[in-house]
């Protein structure tokens, strides 16, 4: 629920010396993305995507840096980032397994896919494995309804998934480097 915001009063922001929004990223964004938008703030979503792609998630410090880069108040960066489900405001695993739970997948037994993922990874939906390799989520419609039940492992679509095929896909993902989306 995008509209439920946690109370952040008195929260401490962990900081580190080197920036998340690196000079190279800034240079690339200034060259390619900023000229596309009439107002600087238009580049906010692409910038957040770029930072998340680099680091896997969006730490508070990164949000502040993005705000400074685009002349947007950090609170407004948070306001936008927290609205969108795909922006990770806590660290996630190197790989994300996303099972579709919407109508076409539910009537085609998505529950067996989620169950297979849970037992394979030993975690519940919404959790990350202890080794930080996998995060399991259930998402609303992925737009792969003709191949229900469907899921995404990192950025790869898996249609007509079965408990066996998803177990195999997880094994394959484990042997590759993390896909930061």
């Amino acid at each position: 629920m995008a509209w439920i915001v946690k109370n952040s009063a008195g929260m401490k922001i962990p900081r580190r010396a080197e920036p998340y929004l690196t000079a190279a990223l800034k240079e690339q964004l200034t060259r390619e993305i900023l000229p596309r938008y009439e107002q600087k703030r238009g580049a906010l979503l692409p910038t957040l995507h770029a930072v998340q792609h680099e680091w896997g998630w969006l730490p508070w410090q990164a949000l502040e840096e993005v705000g400074a880069f685009l002349d947007v108040n950090p609170a407004e960066v948070w306001d936008t980032a927290s609205f969108y489900e795909e922006f990770w405001l806590q660290p996630k695993g190197a790989h994300v397994v996303a099972v579709c739970r919407s109508i076409a997948c539910e009537v085609c037994d998505h529950a067996s896919i989620t169950a297979a993922c849970k037992s394979k990874l030993g975690i519940e939906v919404g959790q990350t494995t202890d080794d930080g390799k996998f995060t399991l989520v259930e998402l609303e419609c992925l737009g792969l309804c003709e191949g229900a039940p469907a899921c995404l492992v990192d950025e790869t679509m898996h249609l007509n998934a079965t408990p066996e095929s998803i177990t195999k896909a997880i094994d394959e993902a484990r042997s590759t480097q993390g896909g930061h989306h």
Partner: peptide
């Protein structure tokens, strides 16, 4: 932004 559940034609 084809997010309506059951829709996948634009893809």
């Amino acid at each position: 932004d084809e997010s309506e559940p059951a829709s996948f034609k634009d893809r």
